[in-house]
Amino acid sequence: MSQLQSACIVDDDPIHLFGMKILMKRLDFSDEVLVFQNGQEAIDGLLDRLGAGKPLPLVIFLDLNMPIKDGWGFLDDFVKIPHHNRERVTIYVVSSSIHPLDQERAKKYEVVGNYIIKPVNEQELKQILVGKD
């Protein structure tokens, strides 16, 4: 049994995805890792899951800079999902942007647990697991 049943990564950068998967596997982060390339894909996928009666992943790693629908767009849509399950979800913004405006903006969303500046390291992931215990 992994620490979490399900986690999700929304990012279009294959290198980052590659790295995240390695790190998460090392920590046995979750049984399942959902991956979406952009915000729109993620919203659609999650809604599909809810439709299929599956629970939402408890942790979502969200990139900001993506085509079609960026991280902000995803956040705006996600908070509107009408499901009680959503309230248990913590979203971690994972971005290469060190711009303070981006961090401030992200913290305005209640659902956002933290803002993680790339690259992500093991310690940070461990920290998340502690919080989710």
């Binding site: 950068d13 980052h16 290469s96 711009h99």
Partner: peptide
């Protein structure tokens, strides 16, 4: 911030 850093971050990782 986004692009150069994202590559740098990738390289670091």
């Amino acid at each position: 911030s986004h692009n150069l850093r994202s590559h740098a971050a990738n390289l670091t990782m």
